[in-house]
Design a protein around this nucleic acid. Sequence first.
DNA 1: CCGAGCTTGTGCACAAAGTCACAAGCATGT
DNA 2: ACATGCTTGTGACTTTGTGCACAAGCTCGG
Lengths: 220, 220
Amino acid sequence: MDGHARRIPDATVARLPEYLRILIELAEQRIGTVSSERLAELAGVNAAKVRKDLSYLGTYGTRGVGYDVDYLLFQMRQALGVTRDCPVVVVGAGNLGRALANYAGFSDRGFPLAAVVDADEAKVGTNVGDVTVRPMSDLAELVRANQPVIGVIATPGPVAQLVADQLVAAGVTAILNFAPALVSVPPNISLRKVDLALELQILSFYQSHRESGSASRGWT
Amino acid sequence: MDGHARRIPDATVARLPEYLRILIELAEQRIGTVSSERLAELAGVNAAKVRKDLSYLGTYGTRGVGYDVDYLLFQMRQALGVTRDCPVVVVGAGNLGRALANYAGFSDRGFPLAAVVDADEAKVGTNVGDVTVRPMSDLAELVRANQPVIGVIATPGPVAQLVADQLVAAGVTAILNFAPALVSVPPNISLRKVDLALELQILSFYQSHRESGSASRGWT
DNA sequence: CCGAGCTTGTGCACAAAGTCACAAGCATGT
DNA sequence: ACATGCTTGTGACTTTGTGCACAAGCTCGG
C-alpha cells in the first residue's frame, strides 16, 4: 500500500496511539506545526525516539520546520488503521463489563459500543449504557452485523478461554482481554491483555523497592 | 534482608504478578510442586524465561523436582511487597471511577477500596460500591488514615496532572493513571498508566497489518 | 552406595530497543 | 545567490531482553 513498508517494531506500535492522541489535541488547538522535541515533551519520551518512531511511517517531516500536524495526523490514522470507527462487543455484564460499556472514552475515540452479551439469563434484557444485554447465543449474529468488530472479554478468569473461542468462532479477529487468565487464540487473531490488579502489584513492587525504581516505562 | 539482592530487570518485574496469580491458583488446587515448564505453559511464556525470572528472587527451586508452590508463593509475595493488603483511593466518580470502585477484582486481590473522592459537589454524598463519595478536600485526611495507599486517577484527561499533584501533596507514593494524559511526578513516586482506548488502537494496528502481526507480547 | 533420570540455574550468543551525534536539507534574511 | 539557523532522518553504539544448551545437583530405586 505504501511504497515504504519497513516493518514497524512492536515498541513503536505501542507508542503510536499516544502520539495520535497528542496530535488530535494539537489539531484542536489549531496548531499547524510541531517539532519532534515538543512532541517528545508532550508524550514524555525523548526526541530522538519520536523521530525514529515517526520515520517508520514514512518521511513526513520538514527539516528546519517540524511536522505538519494535520498531515501527520492523517498518516498516523492511516498507519493505525483507525480511519473508520470500529465497533466493540463486550462479553460479560458483571461489574467490569458494565463499567466498560458505560465508559464514554471508548466511543469518544472511535470505538462505539455495539453490544453487550452475557451467559447469565438473569442479566439478559437489562440495560447497560445505551444497549440491552443480549444472550451469548446472539454473539455470532451481532458480530456478523458489525464487522469488523473488536471483542472485549470482561468475564471471570475461568471462562475467559471459552469466551475467546466463541469470539473467534463468531469471526472476531481482535480481542482485548480484561479477565485475569491466559487465553490462547489462533495466530491470525490479535490479542491483548489488560489486568488491573496486576498493574497495582507492579506499583507495589516499586513502592517497596523505592531505590531507583521507575515504575513507569513506555510499555503500554 | 536477602544476602542476594541483585537488581531485578523491569521486564521481569512486569511478569512477576502473572506468576503470582498462577501460584495462587495452584495453591488453591492443593498442588505442592510445579516445574518451570508447567509454570511457563500456564503463563504463556518460555520455560527458560521463567527460570531466569525466578532466579532473580533467589534460589528457591529444587533440581530434579521443581518449585515448592507454597514456599515460592511466600517469596513472591515478599518480593512484590504484597504481604499486606494495600488500600486504594479512587479520584473521580465518573463512569470510569464508579466502575473501578465497583470492580471486585481489586479487593479480591489485596487492594481494598478505601475511598472515592470527586471535585463535583453534586457527586459528593452519593454511594459508589461500598463507600460514599467524599469531597476533594478530604483527600489528605483519607490518605493519612490509610497509609500506605495507592492513588487511582479516573478523571478526564485535562485535570489528571492537577489531581496527581494533589495526590503527591497528600502523601501518596504510588499512582495508577487511567486518564488519557501525560502526568509527571517527582522521581520518588511510582507511576503507571493504563489507557483503554490506546489498547484498542494497538489492536486496530495489528488487525490492519495482519501479516505476521503478534499483538500480544508479554508487556504490561 | 551408586547410577539413572529429571529439573534447575546460568553462561553465552543473539535480537530488540533506546540513545547519541551529526550530516542532510529546508527556510529565511541579506 | 549565499550564509545562517533550525530540525529532521539515520548510522553507529549502548543497553536491555530473550533463548539455547548444558553443567550442577537433587531424588529415587536397586
